[in-house]
Nucleic acid binder design. Structure first.
Lengths: 82, 82
DNA sequence: AGAAAACAAAGCATATCTGCCTACATTTTT
DNA sequence: AAAAATGTAGGCAGATATGCTTTGTTTTCT
C-alpha cells in the first residue's frame, strides 16, 4: 500500500464528523479541546486531507458522545460493503 | 496527544480482527494479500501493537466482507460510549 | 518426533501523521 | 461596515506508521 487513494472515503468521513460536530453546536476548537487533539488536525480530518489513526478517531467520537459503530453508519456504499 | 494510551482498545480491535479472519479460514498472509497490506502489518494490528489508520483498516475489513460499522460492533464499552 | 505452515519479533529506510506556530480567509455577530 | 469568532492553509520538527527483510518461535499436520 504505497499510496492511499482513500480520498472519497476520507472526505465522506470528514463530512460526517463536521455534521455531528455542528449538530452539537461545537466549534473545531471546542472539539479539539474535548478530544485532546490539535485544532489544525480537526480541520484536516474534516476536510478529508488526512488519513488519521483509529485511536485518534476514537478520541474524537468519544468527545461527540457517539460510538465508532454509530459513527461509521453514515454511508454503507462508502464506509464498507454493500 | 503526545502519547497513545489506547492499548486496551487496540488489543480489543486486534482480537476482533483475528477472530473474524479465522472465522473465514484465512491466514494472515492471505488476508494481507486480499487487503493489499503487509503481512507483518496484519500481525502488528492483531497483536494491538500499532495504531493503524482508518484507511488501512477499511481495506482490511473490506477484505473480510464486513463494514466498519459491523466491525466496531464488538464491545461497546471499549469501542465507544456506554 | 519431524516437517511444514503460520505467526511473532526486530531492525531499517521511507512515508505519513501530528503538534505547534503563523498568516490569511471566511463566517458570524454587533 | 467593523469587529470578533471560526475555519483554512502552510511550513517545520519530531513522532509514529508502513513496507520490506531476516530470524526465531509456535502451531498444525503427517
Amino acid at each position: 500500500m504505497k499510496q492511499t487513494h482513500h480520498t472519497v472515503f476520507l472526505q465522506a468521513l470528514g463530512s460526517r464528523l463536521r455534521d455531528l460536530r455542528r449538530l452539537r453546536g461545537l466549534s473545531q476548537e471546542e472539539l479539539a479541546w474535548k478530544a485532546d487533539v490539535e485544532l489544525s488536525q480537526i480541520s484536516r480530518i474534516e476536510r478529508g486531507v488526512i488519513n488519521t489513526s483509529i485511536g485518534q478517531l476514537l478520541n474524537i467520537v468519544d468527545a461527540l458522545d457517539i460510538s465508532l459503530t454509530e459513527f461509521f453508519a453514515f454511508d454503507q456504499s462508502v464506509a464498507g460493503k454493500p
